[in-house]
Design a binder for these strands. Sequence first.
DNA 1: GGCTGAAGTCTAACATTGTTCGGAAAACCA
DNA 2: TGGTTTTCCGAACAATGTTAGACTTCAGCC
Lengths: 205, 205
Amino acid sequence: MLDFSQTDSSELTARQRRHNQTRREILDAAWRLAEQTGIAGLSLREVAREVGMQAPSLYTYFDSKDALFDAMFAEGYRQLGEAVAEWTAQVGDLEPADALGTVIGLWIQFCQQSIARYQIMFTRAIPGWQPSEEAYAVSATEYQRMAAELEALGVSGPEDLDLYTAVASGLAAQQIANDPTGDRWVRLAPTAARMLLDDIARRRR
Amino acid sequence: MLDFSQTDSSELTARQRRHNQTRREILDAAWRLAEQTGIAGLSLREVAREVGMQAPSLYTYFDSKDALFDAMFAEGYRQLGEAVAEWTAQVGDLEPADALGTVIGLWIQFCQQSIARYQIMFTRAIPGWQPSEEAYAVSATEYQRMAAELEALGVSGPEDLDLYTAVASGLAAQQIANDPTGDRWVRLAPTAARMLLDDIARRRR
DNA sequence: GGCTGAAGTCTAACATTGTTCGGAAAACCA
DNA sequence: TGGTTTTCCGAACAATGTTAGACTTCAGCC
């Protein structure tokens, strides 16, 4: 039931439609608040106040706070999927090094766009929480899709992928921790791409 | 008052010595519990129970939970300083690439040794907390020391350092998140070192 | 030795959290 | 209209960090 927003609306009664709409409002309020307080600082009572409810009423729409996190997590990965699709289209006619550099830069900016989203997707910022199996499945799908795109850019095989992941996520983490609104590490994206591809070539020899 | 454990004991009254000793016990209990629950899951009441006290009694030794985190943070960086000193001694007669590879590997293992320490030092795992100025100063000192050592290994200038930091911390983050007790990313340390140094050489041309 | 004051410890309490329960209102369907 | 389901709320529970106030313990001084 994670992809409520994409459910075929012709099959829905007015009641179900209103239910999904309220769910949407709650999610939006949660994202808004999490952006200010950090994902771990999210408070259900504040979310409720934001949408004009009392806290227990939220339980009509989400089984628990963890379920709300689950929905946010899956939504983040769906957005990542869309972004990746855009990037690969936008990068199709570049040389591999330029293409990879662009993708890394865009990836860091995707992380910068929303700290809350970055925190829930890529860090363990929420004490005790981890995605449910359904939510995890969404993320795994997007990872596979991304891995396929990277293969086309010359990053192939598990070792290459592990190294690429470390570099890209490391750049993003440093960017967000030390220069959240700037581009100090974004600027290094082309260099990092060149570095990775050169090293892959070296190891192939 | 962060370096209580290193205060000259000849100047201390029996009472102060006992005070420091109890502080030490509390810190040890905190590390032990944080290792199980994650740093963000640390509960003062549990810490108190672990040392045979009631929660409010802890406030004789730490002004707040944040002050306890501060002490742990500074202690972590002091341990890092010791470790770095050992590494550089141990690596003195290797070639730069081997030396850097070893250092990166040891660095990742240092992070693996204690998840709680890793979380408080390098992630923002604690909602709302950040190190006090005194604690931050300790970390800044160690970073400068580390930067000096890296310079000797061929990583010089702010750009090199930024890229190195991203790669090393990225490797550690992936290791801890996806294979906390294994060596899937540790094994990549020599490759990463070689990759970094080759790229630095390329950019120097 | 006994007084003084600080240090250590406790219980009680407060505000805040996520969550559950039970009932009232509202919306829907017959 | 009557019956059922959904929605919403107030009260309450357990757990959290923290404070206030009282009691004990203990070192130092006349």
